[in-house]
């Protein structure tokens, strides 16, 4: 039997066009929360891991994934939630990191704080608060240009 499933690679490309609902500058694939895409017989299984357990975007993300894949003609779809291994910002793509910075959000760094001001690139920074406008961000300020900015927390 000849299968006419779109390939898994094609589906990854489609998912890479679905924006994160809270930070639309990056895609769900950039964010690193799509953990697996696989065909099980005629059903497409997409494994998604939540960023933060209470992130209100989680249910919207599932809806967006479903809507995008249905639009591409996928009929049998199953979304699987995976908690372990827990999501980490290490899974964010390089492309996602540069897009974040261009958007004005400092990308996560292993040191635990932003490397430079996303606007003037100064390394002279101070933390305002460990929490920010969404669970994944903290508030920092540049002491050179004095602008506050969001830092995508290393998680």
């Amino acid at each position: 039997m000849v299968t006419d499933h779109p390939s898994v690679q094609t589906i990854w490309t489609w998912l890479d066009q679905v924006p994160d609902p809270e930070i639309p500058a990056i895609s769900l694939v950039d964010l690193g929360i799509i953990r697996d895409v696989a065909w099980v017989d005629d059903t497409l299984e997409v494994t998604v891991t939540p960023t933060y357990s209470g992130c209100p975007a989680t249910s919207i993300i599932n809806l967006d994934v479903e809507a995008a894949l249905r639009e591409h003609g996928i009929q049998h779809l199953r979304l699987k939630r995976q908690l372990s291994p827990a999501w980490t910002t290490d899974w964010m793509t390089e492309k996602g990191r540069s897009k974040l910075e261009a958007y004005g959000i400092a990308p996560p760094q292993p040191s635990g704080g932003p490397k430079q001001c996303p606007r003037c690139k100064s390394p002279h920074l101070e933390r305002i608060s460990q929490f920010g406008s969404t669970p994944c961000k903290a508030q920092w300020r540049c002491t050179d240009c004095l602008e506050p900015f969001d830092y995508f927390k290393c998680h």
Binding site: S53, G54, P56
Partner: peptide, 20 residues
């Protein structure tokens, strides 16, 4: 304001864990 946001985020994490 910063504390308000931090408290709301903490609450959100806890409610998320509750759902699990």
């Amino acid at each position: 304001l910063e504390e308000d946001i931090a408290l709301a985020n903490t609450a959100l994490d806890l409610i998320g864990q509750t759902q699990l």
